[in-house]
Amino acid sequence: VKKMAKAIMADPNKADEVYKKWADKGYTLTQMSNFLKSKTAGKYDRVYNGYVIHLD
């Protein structure tokens, strides 16, 4: 998940494709939050927020 999150950060155009894969795998927002937690607070906030919007 972190590898794909980094791919989104490097190229935001990949976001919809990645979010669809995550949704197809049934990842919940709680799971995504836990996967994307980082020592650098807020590092993956943009990715998480994008997934929230995708699921909505």
Rank of each mutant, 00 (worst) to 15 (best):
residue 4 M to E: 15
residue 29 L to I: 11
residue 18 V to R: 01
residue 40 T to R: 10
residue 17 E to W: 12
residue 4 M to D: 15
residue 7 A to Q: 13
residue 26 G to V: 01
residue 19 Y to N: 00
residue 35 F to G: 02
residue 18 V to C: 04
residue 2 K to Y: 05
residue 52 V to I: 09
residue 56 D to K: 15
residue 15 A to P: 03
residue 18 V to E: 04
residue 19 Y to S: 02
residue 42 G to M: 05
residue 43 K to I: 09
residue 4 M to P: 05
residue 49 N to F: 14
residue 56 D to C: 15
residue 50 G to Y: 04
residue 14 K to I: 15
residue 40 T to Q: 12
residue 2 K to M: 08
residue 3 K to I: 08
residue 25 K to L: 15
residue 15 A to G: 05
residue 29 L to Q: 07
residue 40 T to F: 09
residue 23 A to R: 10
residue 14 K to L: 13
residue 56 D to F: 15
residue 44 Y to Q: 01
residue 25 K to S: 14
residue 54 H to I: 06
residue 32 M to I: 15
residue 30 T to D: 15
residue 18 V to N: 02
residue 45 D to I: 06
residue 51 Y to G: 02
residue 25 K to Q: 14
residue 2 K to V: 11
residue 34 N to R: 12
residue 22 W to C: 00
residue 40 T to G: 08
residue 55 L to F: 05
residue 56 D to A: 15
residue 13 N to W: 11
residue 7 A to W: 13
residue 18 V to W: 03
residue 5 A to Y: 03
residue 6 K to E: 15
residue 44 Y to M: 02
residue 4 M to K: 06
residue 9 M to Y: 05
residue 50 G to S: 04
residue 18 V to Y: 10
residue 9 M to V: 06
residue 13 N to K: 13
residue 42 G to A: 06
residue 47 V to H: 03
residue 52 V to H: 07
residue 10 A to S: 11
residue 4 M to V: 06
residue 29 L to G: 05
residue 54 H to S: 05
residue 30 T to H: 12
residue 7 A to P: 04
residue 41 A to L: 13
residue 41 A to D: 11
residue 37 K to N: 09
residue 38 S to V: 08
residue 21 K to Y: 15
residue 41 A to E: 14
residue 42 G to T: 06
residue 14 K to N: 09
residue 10 A to C: 13
residue 8 I to P: 02
residue 48 Y to N: 02
residue 16 D to K: 11
residue 13 N to M: 12
residue 38 S to M: 06
residue 45 D to F: 06
residue 1 V to L: 07
residue 28 T to Q: 04
residue 53 I to R: 13
residue 34 N to F: 14
residue 1 V to H: 03
residue 36 L to R: 00
residue 40 T to C: 10
residue 14 K to M: 14
residue 44 Y to P: 00
residue 51 Y to D: 00
residue 47 V to A: 05
residue 43 K to M: 09
residue 46 R to N: 14
residue 27 Y to C: 05
residue 26 G to E: 06
residue 7 A to C: 09
residue 28 T to Y: 01
residue 49 N to Y: 14
residue 25 K to E: 13
residue 37 K to D: 09
residue 28 T to A: 03
residue 9 M to G: 03
residue 8 I to M: 06
residue 46 R to F: 14
residue 42 G to W: 05
residue 40 T to H: 14
residue 35 F to L: 12
residue 12 P to A: 11
residue 18 V to G: 03
residue 26 G to K: 07
residue 23 A to N: 07
residue 14 K to V: 13
residue 37 K to M: 10
residue 39 K to A: 11
residue 36 L to Q: 01
residue 42 G to Y: 05
residue 53 I to A: 15
residue 51 Y to Q: 01
residue 38 S to Y: 09
residue 20 K to V: 08
residue 38 S to D: 13
residue 7 A to V: 11
residue 1 V to M: 06
residue 25 K to R: 14
residue 21 K to M: 15
residue 27 Y to A: 01
residue 50 G to R: 02
residue 13 N to H: 11
residue 50 G to Q: 07
residue 52 V to K: 15
residue 23 A to D: 05
residue 23 A to P: 00
residue 24 D to T: 10
residue 7 A to M: 15
residue 36 L to C: 03
residue 26 G to T: 03
residue 26 G to P: 06
residue 12 P to Q: 08
residue 24 D to Q: 13
residue 23 A to W: 07
residue 46 R to G: 14
residue 39 K to V: 09
residue 21 K to D: 14
residue 29 L to W: 03
residue 38 S to T: 10
residue 48 Y to G: 00
residue 25 K to M: 15
residue 42 G to E: 07
residue 29 L to P: 10
residue 35 F to M: 12
residue 16 D to I: 12
residue 5 A to V: 04
residue 34 N to C: 12
residue 30 T to N: 13
residue 35 F to V: 07
residue 30 T to Q: 15
residue 42 G to L: 06
residue 8 I to Y: 04
residue 1 V to I: 13
residue 56 D to L: 15
residue 21 K to L: 15
residue 8 I to D: 03
residue 37 K to W: 10
residue 6 K to A: 14
residue 35 F to A: 06
residue 36 L to V: 01
residue 31 Q to K: 05
residue 56 D to G: 13
residue 29 L to S: 07
residue 14 K to T: 09
residue 5 A to T: 03
residue 37 K to V: 09
residue 20 K to L: 05
residue 16 D to S: 11
residue 46 R to K: 14
residue 44 Y to S: 01
residue 53 I to G: 06
residue 27 Y to W: 07
residue 19 Y to A: 00
residue 36 L to G: 05
residue 30 T to L: 13
residue 31 Q to V: 07
residue 47 V to S: 01
residue 15 A to E: 05
residue 12 P to K: 06
residue 45 D to W: 08
residue 17 E to T: 10
residue 30 T to R: 10
residue 41 A to I: 13
residue 34 N to L: 13
residue 4 M to Y: 07
residue 38 S to E: 05
residue 12 P to E: 08
residue 2 K to I: 12
residue 13 N to G: 12
residue 30 T to P: 09
residue 33 S to V: 10
residue 3 K to D: 12
residue 49 N to A: 13
residue 11 D to F: 07
residue 32 M to R: 00
residue 45 D to N: 08
residue 53 I to E: 14
residue 45 D to M: 07
residue 32 M to W: 01
residue 26 G to S: 04
residue 17 E to P: 04
residue 12 P to V: 07
residue 49 N to S: 12
residue 29 L to D: 04
residue 43 K to R: 08
residue 42 G to P: 02
residue 16 D to R: 10
residue 5 A to R: 00
residue 43 K to T: 06
residue 54 H to Q: 03
residue 48 Y to V: 07
residue 46 R to A: 15
residue 9 M to S: 03
residue 26 G to M: 05
residue 35 F to I: 09
residue 42 G to Q: 05
residue 43 K to Y: 12
residue 30 T to M: 12
residue 4 M to R: 04
residue 11 D to K: 05
residue 52 V to A: 14
residue 31 Q to I: 07
residue 39 K to L: 08
residue 22 W to D: 00
residue 39 K to E: 14
residue 10 A to M: 13
residue 56 D to P: 03
residue 13 N to I: 08
residue 48 Y to A: 02
residue 39 K to T: 14
residue 41 A to W: 09
residue 45 D to K: 06
residue 55 L to Q: 04
residue 36 L to W: 03
residue 42 G to N: 09
residue 29 L to T: 10
residue 20 K to D: 04
residue 54 H to L: 05
residue 21 K to V: 14
residue 38 S to L: 07
residue 9 M to P: 00
residue 3 K to W: 11
residue 25 K to N: 11
residue 46 R to E: 15
residue 49 N to K: 11
residue 49 N to D: 14
residue 20 K to E: 07
residue 50 G to N: 03
residue 8 I to V: 11
residue 46 R to I: 14
residue 38 S to Q: 05
residue 47 V to C: 01
residue 55 L to V: 04
residue 49 N to I: 12
